[in-house]
Design a protein around this nucleic acid. Structure first.
Lengths: 250, 250
DNA sequence: CATCAGGTTTGATCTGCATCAAGGTGTTTC
DNA sequence: GAAACACCTTGATGCAGATCAAACCTGATG
């Protein structure tokens, strides 16, 4: 049993529409709450590259990702960009109690989001406190992920950053698709080199070079454009600089 | 009126012991809730440099900073360290629902914390939902701060990092002490060069050089060891690389 | 007062990543 | 099928910040 499979916490796919992702139990989705959510929800689709909202724009909804990948980014006046959030299916976007978006929200791939109008959602939160509780849990998880990310940005080398990102995606992907066969791990890396560079605080040239380096050393195998195979997850994990156990759980 | 004073959101000093800091209204501290908190709280003092808990250690309390500064840091196997949280008076530490600390918690200065035993605190959270609500609000604020911090770590130059840190401390300090006289701003920078470097993802030599550079250019004035004067806050703000308005609020 | 220790500054040199530049690959469009 | 486009790779060069090293406070201790 490899370290990957140990760490995976599968959660029910059927709950993607629920604004609060469930890690395990779906029964907590009480019927009336779901009915209320039903009434205020609507779907929006975006093509890869499209912007969902710009930083500073009005954002009168909260949403959860159904399929695809969305990113949160900040931009400096001179154009330097840093990704600060990566939203995979079932992840939540938007902040109750805030009028405008603090970040650019962008579709990294084709994207479907399940949106809930903010006002009624906030009212629902007051009526059903366990939505707030779950939101708190999720926010604390995101904060932990952000702090792991800060370590990556502040202290890791380019090589370690790339290895870390691949491991993070692999884990998340595995936990979504439950395709973790021991040893080898195959998945889609659905980010462009540019998106990866924005995630990692590097330039896209450096990303390209380091990916090539890992490929040449056999730590990863690339098939076609975006498909990645990790022959030995533990071996790649050693390149991340992370503590070999404990580690992060994103 | 300078940008500093515009942004300051003073909150009552008397609420330091309350595990949830109040930004404005203190009246929400209902009497019975405070009584319950009274029963499960105790104080702990630490000297500058002491460790409160190590990452991975059992942490059976949550706490808020009464006086002094605490830091959260992560350490890599080879000793590289990155600060991921900076706790000033009234800030909250610890995560309900987690047994062990994910980070090293360290006293950056002499420190007094008001601790609450975790178990009863969690029970209290269930009984009084608005504690959870405020905790959610605070966690969202922390997440925003973490994301601002990620931009700093990933994209800013050493000079911009230093300027940003000084502005952040100045703002927080001003909001605590309400001593914001327009124009000039005087406060304590209570971090060693090493702590600053851990915050910023730099070496302490680089921190020292950049602080000297800002001093030579007159953007800051240092008095004695740790006292800092900012003659013109807006001028320093321009060195941070941040959007001149909007910006971050922590 | 001399010594010491923790923290700070400054200098010299090195290096990892950014920058600038050019070419490659696969996919869409007409 | 050729042109256009989006994305990726690789090479050459430069520089910001790391590293290594030494000296400099300043307050504490005997």
């Amino acid at each position: 049993m490899t370290r990957v499979s140990q760490k995976i916490q599968p959660f029910s796919q059927e709950c993607n529409d629920c604004p609060i992702r469930h890690r395990a139990v779906c029964a907590r989705c009480e019927a009336d709450e779901l009915t209320l959510l039903e009434q205020i929800k609507y779907y929006r689709s975006f093509e890869a590259g499209q912007t969902v909202v710009w930083a500073g724009d009005k954002m009168d909804f909260v949403a959860s990702v159904v399929t695809g990948i969305a990113t949160l980014s900040q931009t400096m006046e001179d154009g330097r960009r840093q990704m600060v959030g990566l939203l995979l299916p079932s992840d939540f976007a938007g902040r109750p109690g805030r009028e405008t978006s603090a970040y650019d929200v962008t579709a990294a791939t084709d994207l479907v989001m399940c949106c809930f109008r903010k006002k009624p959602f906030e009212e629902l939160m007051i009526r059903t406190p366990h939505i707030g509780q779950r939101l708190l849990e999720m926010t604390l998880d995101e904060l932990d992920a952000a702090r792991e990310w800060m370590l990556l940005l502040g202290r890791k080398t380019a090589r370690e950053k790339i290895a870390s990102l691949i491991c993070i995606i692999a884990r998340r992907d595995a936990s979504l698709q439950l395709n973790a066969s021991d040893g080898e791990l195959r998945f889609d890396l659905p980010l462009t080199r540019e998106a990866m560079s924005e995630y990692l605080g590097l330039t896209l040239e450096t990303v390209s070079r380091q990916v090539s380096a890992l490929r040449k050393e056999g730590l990863i195998v690339t098939e076609g454009k975006r498909q990645i195979v990790i022959p030995d997850f533990d071996l790649l994990l050693e390149e991340t600089g992370d503590d070999s156990d404990g580690g992060f759980l994103i």
